[in-house]
């Protein structure tokens, strides 16, 4: 059974078609990585998955519910880390945590404190004064603290140092996957994905050019994910 599904999804901005007729399913407990070049429409699909953007056509469902219409219900089971780490800049990590604790049903304060401490994020420093990497860690920690059933990550390693990147991919995602948490992520970090993702999808020319289990794709094409990605991009350019 799929936790997140895209059925015939189009995303258009005015007359520009970004995604066309996308069908994609993320099974329960899977770690799905959506790959694609800049501007391929990955973030648009993430927004559709969160119910922040309405697809121009088609339907996006999470836990069997329309994400646009049932946004609040869907989000009560979802954790999200955006591409650009944005939060009210005057609030510290603790204050943001206090806010999130109010609005989420489940909350894990100890786990949050441990993660912040582990990465040396000052919990009382205003969010606006943190480095980009620290902001990313704070948002990821907040997303995990609500014990989500689906974790949506929009290029979560952007701007992170090597240690943090490893934390995201190997430990956090791996751990979550072991617990049965479904992960849907977009990323450019192919090397990092290779170790943790069950499935990958290559978004190219507004369509899903490749979609399948990582190992199966690698075996079928005899290439690494990076090589596959480059080949898909080259085909897109040629088209």
């Amino acid at each position: 059974m799929s936790v997140l599904s895209f059925a015939g999804v189009d995303v258009r901005y005015d007359r520009r078609v970004v995604v066309q007729g996308l069908d994609l399913e993320v099974p329960a407990g899977a770690v799905y990585a959506l790959l694609g070049r800049n501007g391929a429409g990955k973030s648009s699909l993430v927004r559709c998955a969160l119910g922040v953007q309405r697809p121009s056509a088609g339907r996006v469902e999470a836990f069997g519910e329309d994400t646009w219409r049932r946004r609040t219900r869907v989000l009560s089971r979802v954790g999200f880390v955006p591409e650009e780490p944005g939060a009210p800049p005057a609030s510290s990590a603790l204050q943001l945590a206090s806010f999130c604790r109010t609005v989420h049903r489940r909350w894990d304060p100890d786990g949050l404190a441990q993660r912040l401490e582990r990465f040396g994020v000052p919990p009382r420093l205003p969010f606006g004064r943190l480095s980009r990497g620290q902001k990313g860690i704070v948002l990821l920690s907040l997303a995990l603290a609500c014990a989500p059933e689906l974790l949506v990550l929009d290029d979560p390693t952007l701007g992170l140092d090597l240690v943090a990147r490893r934390f995201v991919f190997e430990e956090l995602v791996g751990e979550l996957a072991d617990r049965g948490t479904t992960v849907f992520m977009t990323t450019h970090d192919l090397a990092g994905v290779e170790g943790v993702a069950d499935r990958v999808g290559f978004l190219s020319g507004g369509r899903l050019a490749l979609d399948g289990p990582v190992e199966e794709l690698k075996q079928r094409h005899g290439e690494s994910l990076e090589e596959l990605f480059l080949r898909v991009c080259a085909r897109e350019e040629a088209a």
Binding site: L50, V52, R71, T72, R73, L75, S76, V78, F80, P82, E84, G86, A87, P88, L96, C100, V103, H104, R105, L139, A143
Partner: peptide, 15 residues
């Protein structure tokens, strides 16, 4: 403008 809307929109808060 500051792309912070996601912080609130990603929460189970009604609009």
């Amino acid at each position: 403008r500051e792309e912070r809307a996601a912080f609130l929109f990603a929460r189970p808060l009604s609009l």
